[in-house]
Design a protein around this nucleic acid. Structure first.
Lengths: 147, 147
DNA sequence: GTTACTGCAAAGCTTTTGCACTGTC
DNA sequence: GACAGTGCAAAAGCTTTGCAGTAAC
């Protein structure tokens, strides 16, 4: 895999734990917590521990390969970053009833244009170099609304 | 104060801890953590403990008087909700270098219009009742950019 | 007088760290 | 062979909970 090369460029080694973690993230469309990832990684390769998963995730985030999200339930969630292994840009609807996360990508282009303009002005006004933005909608999914 | 009445409508009692917590939140423009709030509350009234602050914040959030934010540093921050005691709608720039939070309210009207449209369409498409949205920009403040 | 509220201490969770061992390059 | 990476166990940090005492209405 070509990520191998990317690891070495950053001065890191490619190991079983790292490769398996990336594989797990590539093969899911869920929003996995560190422990979720650990369980999957561990079932593929029982030698790999939770600590390694945490350390790998931190590394992948620093390399820009993974994004970390907080949906308000006290544990972080991880996703392959946009563009990595075909992952597409999207935002999230978070159900405050059951915690379900719905991805949507309908308006991301529109949002991109909108935010680009705002970011430009905020950057200038506050002397702030914006590198990233987070958009999340909260509410109730159909099931929870009916209940 | 008229919040007193609001508490009773919800079936809650107004107590020293709750009143002091609201006062602290009203009088700051910082983004206080539970412990920050506790320190201030405790300095006004040393009888009030951290547990009460946590329980009060939870209550205030459920009553819609307080909003809870996560800026990625592992502890939650609390602010008076929009409209309570004159608190105005705003969003946040988060410096990933030093953790500084900058409030801005320049584009919130524009954002409101923009999001209203998107929320309407997402609600319909995903059968999801959107009650709230979160917008945050991440980047580097001037000091951290120079360092 | 009832019932909700509170403080304290202890527990619960996720995440991080120390250290000796292991594996990659 | 050097040095980064790893597992395990322990620690850290924020937040929640149990319980007996206290205060609001």
């Amino acid at each position: 895999m070509q990520l191998n090369k990317q690891f070495r460029q950053f001065g890191h080694k490619m190991t079983a734990g790292r490769e398996t973690t990336i594989d797990v993230l590539s093969e899911t469309d869920e929003h996995l917590s560190a422990e979720d990832i650990y369980i999957k990684v561990h079932s593929v390769n029982p030698k790999i521990g939770l600590t390694t998963v945490y350390r790998t995730l931190e590394l992948l985030i620093n390399m820009g390969l993974v994004s970390k999200f907080d949906f308000g339930d006290g544990r972080a969630r991880y996703e392959l970053a946009e563009g990595i292994k075909g992952a597409t840009h999207h935002h999230h609807l978070v159900c405050t009833g059951c915690g379900r996360i719905i991805d949507y990508s309908e308006f991301v282009d529109e949002e991109k244009t909108f935010f680009k303009r705002i970011e430009r002005e905020l950057s200038r006004k506050y002397d702030f170099r914006i590198t990233n933005h987070l958009v999340q909608f909260y509410g109730l999914c159909k099931k929870c609304e009916e209940a």
